[in-house]
C-alpha cells in the first residue's frame, strides 16, 4: 500500500451539502425575477446586473488577495448572490459608478471588514443599498417605468399623465405622498411586475416562485418568510380596518415594493438571521411589523431594507434568548 492511512475522529462520511450548493441554489431561485426585470427594463437591467455581480466579485477578490492575503473564495457564490441582490435593489437607471461604489461598500464594509463570509452581522447587499439610498437619494428614487409597450393590461395605480415620461413613482411612493385614495389596486399587473420600482422587486410572482424553490430544496426554511409575510399582512390589515381611506389594504402592501424580495432572499440570509426556529419566527414578525411601520409612518415609502437591517442587529440577542427545544425536556414517566 503506497498511501498512508488517515486517522480522524468519527464521522468518516460527509454529506454532499456545500456552501456552493446553497449559494448557487439562491442564484437559481432568483433567475425568474431576473428574467422579468430584463423583460421589463430591457438592456439597462442587464447592464446593472452585470456591473453589480462583477464589481462585487472583484472587490471580494481584491480584498482577499491583497488586503487579507488569505485564500480567495469568490467562487463560493456568496459574492454573486450579493451582487444580484444589490442589482435587484437599485433602479435600472442608476449610473454605473454609483453601483460600483455600492458594491465596494456592500462587500468591503458589509462583509469583508467583519472577516468575510459568515462573520457579517448585516446583510451585505442591504448595507450597500442603504449606503446608496442615503448617499445618492435622487438617483436611487428615480425609477424608470417598465417599457411601455410591454404593459400587460393597463397602468393602473399610476397617474395616467406620466405614461409617456421615462420615469415614474412607485405605487408605494404614491401611497406615501398622496395617501391610500391615490392608489387603485391592480394586483394582477403588480404580481406580474408591470410597475415602477427597483429592478428586481417588481414581479412578486417571480419572486414567490423562486422562494418556493428555495424552500422545496431546503435551502431555507419556511419560518422567516411565513412569519414575515403574515405579520406584515396582519399589521397592515389592522391599520386598513381602522381607516381604509388613509391606509392601503394589506394585499397592496404584499405585492408592491421590495417585500417579496426581502422576505424570501434577504431576510432569510443565513449569516444575518437567527439560528433557531423560534428565533426565526421572532425575526420574521419583527421585520414584518417594522416594514409596515416604516412604510406608513415615516417619510420613506419603502421599509423592507431598514426593517431587515434593524432586525439583523437584533439577531445576536434573539440567538441568545431563543434556544431550540432540547431532547428530553419533557418530564420522565416514572
Amino acid at each position: 500500500m503506497k498511501n498512508q492511512l488517515i486517522i480522524s475522529s468519527s464521522p468518516h462520511v460527509r454529506g454532499n451539502w456545500t456552501i456552493e450548493k446553497a449559494m448557487y441554489g439562491v442564484v437559481m431561485a432568483m433567475i425568474p425575477a431576473m428574467l422579468v426585470s430584463f423583460y421589463m427594463f430591457g438592456l439597462g437591467a442587464l447592464r446593472v446586473m452585470l456591473i453589480s455581480i462583477v464589481a462585487c466579485m472583484a472587490v471580494e477578490y481584491v480584498i482577499q488577495k491583497y488586503v487579507i492575503k488569505g485564500p480567495v473564495t469568490i467562487t463560493d457564490g456568496s459574492a454573486i448572490v450579493t451582487g444580484i441582490l444589490l442589482a435587484f435593489n437599485v433602479p435600472t437607471s442608476i449610473p454605473s459608478w454609483m453601483l460600483i461604489a455600492g458594491a465596494i461598500v456592500a462587500i468591503g464594509m458589509g462583509k469583508m471588514s467583519f472577516g468575510g463570509l459568515g462573520k457579517n452581522p448585516f446583510n451585505p447587499a442591504l448595507v450597500g443599498r442603504v449606503f446608496m439610498l442615503i448617499s445618492f437619494p435622487a438617483a436611487m428614487t428615480t425609477w424608470p417605468k417598465p417599457i411601455v409597450s410591454r404593459e400587460f393590461f393597463s397602468f393602473a395605480g399610476l397617474d395616467a399623465k406620466t405614461l409617456d415620461t421615462v420615469t415614474g413613482p412607485t405605487p408605494l411612493g404614491i401611497l406615501n405622498e398622496q395617501g391610500a385614495n391615490a392608489v387603485t389596486p391592480d394586483y394582477v399587473n403588480q404580481l406580474l411586475g408591470s410597475m415602477s420600482g427597483s429592478m428586481g422587486e417588481i414581479s412578486a410572482l417571480a419572486l414567490i416562485l423562486g422562494g418556493i424553490y428555495l424552500i422545496a430544496r431546503k435551502i431555507i426554511t419556511w419560518h422567516v418568510p411565513v412569519s414575515y409575510l403574515l405579520s406584515s399582512f396582519v399589521f397592515a390589515g389592522i391599520l386598513w380596518l381602522v381607516d381604509p381611506s388613509q391606509y392601503a389594504d394589506p394585499l397592496f402592501h404584499m405585492v408592491t415594493g421590495g417585500l417579496m424580495l426581502g422576505v424570501f432572499y434577504m431576510a432569510t440570509d443565513y449569516v444575518s438571521s437567527p439560528m433557531s426556529k423560534k428565533g426565526m419566527l421572532i425575526f420574521g414578525v419583527g421585520a414584518g411589523v417594522l416594514t409596515i411601520l416604516i412604510r406608513v409612518f415615516t417619510p420613506y415609502p419603502e421599509g423592507v431594507s431598514f426593517a431587515i437591517l434593524l432586525m439583523n442587529g437584533f439577531t445576536p440577542l434573539i440567538n441568545t434568548y431563543t434556544k431550540p427545544k432540547r431532547f428530553g425536556e419533557k418530564q420522565p414517566v416514572n
Binding site: 498512508q4 492511512l5 488517515i6 486517522i7 480522524s8 475522529s9
Partner: peptide
C-alpha cells in the same frame, strides 16, 4: 509518519484519538 492525522489542530484532541 506512519499514518496521517486529519482533524482539529489540537494536541489535546489528537491525544485522545
Amino acid at each position: 509518519k506512519k499514518v496521517e492525522y486529519e482533524g482539529p489542530q489540537s494536541c489535546a484532541f489528537a491525544h485522545s484519538l
